[in-house]
């Protein structure tokens, strides 16, 4: 506001000066906020998914990554765990996801019909499932325990019944289980 128009007296000059100070402060506040977001993005690796991927929702069940026997948790050679899941009206498959503690987890999920949302309570795992696209996010669970995993997006009548669960178990126990099953879940 350097060119505040037609300032005629001292009062106006004082007012303009106060305004300029406040405007500068406001801009500083905003730069700090944006900076913090960028910093968090870099140092805590909490950026949105890196790549956009597509998947045909109508044929997920016939073959490929999201065929039902490939859903669940898979131990990868590099020591990480990949969890694959789908959302459909009105359940996630698997409806109970099993993950180990202290392990980098990559969640890959998509929807076979409408828009769903996947939220693991008590964690930062929270993403949309949009039919046609694959949602990918990374997570790490520190403590064993159980979490609820509701669908957080309206997916038509029946949405209120779409609650799955996540069970976090000790890493060693999880790895033991992978020796006789290639895809794990905690569905009973």
């Amino acid at each position: 506001m350097t060119s505040s128009p037609h300032i005629h007296d001292d009062g106006a000059a004082v007012a303009a000066r106060a305004e300029r100070r406040w405007a500068t402060l406001s801009i500083v506040i905003i730069v700090v906020i944006a900076g913090v977001a960028a910093f968090a993005g870099i140092h805590q690796a909490t950026m949105p998914q890196v790549r956009v991927e597509t998947a045909d929702p109508t044929t997920l069940h016939i073959g490929g990554e999201f065929v039902e026997t490939n859903l669940g948790s898979a131990a990868e050679p590099d020591g990480t765990v990949t969890v694959r899941a789908i959302g459909q009206r009105y359940s996630f498959t698997p409806q109970c996801i099993l993950v180990p503690t202290d392990t980098p987890i990559t969640l890959r999920a998509t929807s076979s019909d409408v828009v769903h949302g996947l939220l693991i309570q008590g964690t930062n795992v929270n993403t949309m499932l949009v039919p046609g696209y694959v949602s990918v996010l990374t997570a790490r669970f520190e403590k064993p325990g159980e979490h609820l995993m509701p669908c957080q997006e309206f997916c038509s009548i029946g949405h209120e019944g779409m609650w799955a669960r996540v069970k976090v178990i000790d890493k060693a126990a999880f790895m033991n289980m992978t020796s006789n099953r290639r895809r794990l879940d905690c569905v009973e």
Binding site: S26, P48, Q49, V50, V52, T127, Y133, S135, V136
Partner: peptide
């Protein structure tokens, strides 16, 4: 659409930064 899979992370950041600006 931060949590949407169909938008690239770069554009999410650009929109996030401009969102900060709207506080001005």
């Amino acid at each position: 659409a931060f949590a949407d899979p169909q938008v690239g992370a770069g554009f999410k950041f650009i929109h996030s930064a401009f969102t900060a600006l709207v506080a001005l």
